[in-house]
């Protein structure tokens, strides 16, 4: 089925089987292998990408459902020559060991920081009508959809906090 998705700013037209997930379209058809296939059931977050600016699990979506959408994968978040501040922070804070979950962690953090900027609540938000402060508990809760098997969580929290501090 003919499907056109704007990926990292460039319109890409694919002819995909309807069963192709957005994740497989990125990885297998467009050879953008940054987004990772971990569990393939929406439980680990390794496949997280941004669709029209919001983070989702690319494994739990069909490519054909995204005809007309704008998708940003880790390849569009930053480049080797122009890293995103979160990518710099993950390096500075040593926020990974094997690195498999890292593209999903960073895409998720980009979306999460935008959600905080828009004052979206989480289950750690005690005052639903006030301004949200990104405490450590808020940050951990908001990133709970991204699993790190190496358990680099303290460094991931530190990396995201350092960027949130700059932009807050």
């Amino acid at each position: 089925m003919r499907t056109t998705i704007t990926v990292n700013g460039e319109a890409r037209t694919l002819d995909v089987d309807t069963r192709t997930t957005l994740l497989d379209a990125l990885r297998e058809h467009l050879k953008l292998t940054g987004a990772k296939k971990g569990c393939d059931h929406g439980q680990c977050g390794a496949c997280t990408v941004l669709v029209n600016g919001e983070r989702i699990n690319a494994c739990l979506s069909l490519a054909v459902m995204h005809d007309g959408d704008s998708v940003t994968s880790i390849e569009g978040v930053g480049t080797v020559g122009a890293l995103h501040p979160l990518q710099v922070a993950f390096l500075t804070e040593d926020a990974f060991q094997c690195g498999y979950c890292t593209p999903g962690q960073i895409c998720s953090a980009v979306g999460m920081l935008q959600e905080v900027a828009e004052n979206w609540p989480s289950q750690e938000t005690a005052d639903l009508t006030g301004r949200i402060t990104l405490t450590d508990d808020e940050l951990r809760e908001r990133m709970s959809g991204n699993i790190c098997r190496c358990s680099a969580y303290p460094q991931i929290v530190a990396a995201i906090k350092s960027v949130a501090g700059e932009t807050a």
Partner: peptide, 27 residues
Amino acid sequence: ADARVRARYPVLTQAIVAGGSGQLRNK
């Protein structure tokens, strides 16, 4: 995140954010 839901139906906001992950709730 709807301001009216948060102000008048906080139980609904609390229930929704108790389910799934940020990525799942966005979809």
